[in-house]
Design a protein around this nucleic acid. Structure first.
Lengths: 234, 234
DNA sequence: AAGTGGTCTAGACCACAAA
DNA sequence: TTGTGGTCTAGACCACTTT
């Protein structure tokens, strides 16, 4: 019992803490692998895994022969407090997020061009998501009826479908494609934006590890509220 | 001499070849770490690094206790043969790519809000990039005069500034922020698109490993020619 | 020459999944 | 119970960067 954490996670947590509290400040060079391994009393590989983790979190950078450095934060400030990236949209499940069901129907899988395998019937769920009373996105989701609990209801259709899915399936990966589009009728009214205003159209397919298509999602995001942020290395 | 490759890279190359030739087909389960280590005559850690590499390339997925699987390719087909993502824009340096210099001037660093450190003067380069005679993007770049060779000319301003930069600096990382915007005057004329058509606006800051700001980039991409594609795992 | 990250091994034990 | 991925060690040698 007690906590179920790995050694390298604990090391990573401590390094992250040092970065946040300024023990290791921006642009500063960290002690070497060897020194850290010594200090923490773990093997060098464990240090390297912890550092790799912080690199994937975009807090550190390293370069052969030079050392490991604390990454500088982006200086770009979009005036709005918009969401950071589509990957993080799911994290804003706070109390100010509302979901309104626009439509819920069943269709046969042979009516769509997507390969849902054995599944015969799909739910097609259209819903509007709001944040602080402001319409943010319109989502349209396709999901096999059998992948949701038999008790699935309209009420549940306003909550996280990912969580429902995960009760019976292990989610492996999602392919996403994002386009810049003009928001036209009838979407502009639902999103409460001027006709033709620019927005993001995101299409994604979610698969289980062994490649079964679990969910298809086609959504529109207000361009004035969302930004995509990412960091590229090397 | 001869090739300068690592063991795990060679293993990764062979695994990639097997995936491409169908020895390991889509959705198929690979042999276990142990079996592969045995077959290749290397340690298990080396196999794991090779597999990690292919996972980061989005060719494999794995799950504890279950196994490693070949990832399914995305089924989304944007009708156009547009560029895959901003990360790959630089790879299309084929013969059909043209760059036209729109303007080139020098300014003092104290005229901008960006922290270029010691640098006093910046080049501001505005250029238009075309692919197959079609205008694709408008770029505006800020870069310290000292970071480019003293021989820097207008002719060179139409080629890869990254390559020029790399002659004297090691590039560490770039922060990017992407917005969906309406293309307005005068950009719509340069890009040859209707007024108000949706497009991407991308702002990026490129840093060296030790956190010196090397380059700032603000670009507009035609929404009808570009898509952002990405794959999320777990 | 010294410092620091990159690769590699051989073997051990743990944790989750499926038979 | 068996298979398979996840973590961890201790030590060795290589390659790039800086002194």
């Amino acid at each position: 019992m007690t906590k179920r954490v790995t050694l390298f996670t604990e090391v990573a947590d401590e390094l992250r803490r040092r970065i946040q509290t300024g023990v290791y400040s921006e642009q500063m060079k960290l002690p070497s692998d060897y020194e850290l391994a010594d200090e923490f009393g773990v093997s060098r590989l464990t240090i390297r895994k912890a550092v790799d983790q912080l690199i994937s979190e975009q807090r550190l950078v390293k370069h052969r022969g030079k050392g490991t450095y604390v990454m500088r934060a982006p200086k770009l400030y979009s005036g709005h407090y918009g969401l950071t990236s589509f990957t993080e949209v799911g994290e804003h499940l706070g109390k100010d997020v509302q979901t309104k069901l626009l439509s819920l129907k069943k269709i046969k899988t042979d009516q769509v061009a997507l390969d849902f395998g054995e599944a015969r019937e799909l739910f097609v769920i259209q819903r509007l998501r709001q944040y602080n009373q402001t319409a943010m996105t319109i989502e349209e989701l396709w999901i096999p009826v059998d992948y949701l609990p038999p008790t699935f209801s309209e009420e549940q259709a306003t909550h996280s479908l990912f969580q429902l899915l995960e009760q019976s399936h292990v989610i492996g990966y999602s392919h996403q494609e994002i386009a810049a589009v003009n928001i036209e009728a009838p979407y502009h009214e639902l999103l409460n934006v001027p006709l033709h205003q620019a927005g993001f159209k995101m299409m994604s397919e979610t698969y289980s590890v062994d490649g079964a298509l679990l969910l298809y999602d086609c959504s529109y995001y207000r361009g004035d509220e969302y930004r995509i942020k990412q960091t590229l290395q090397r």
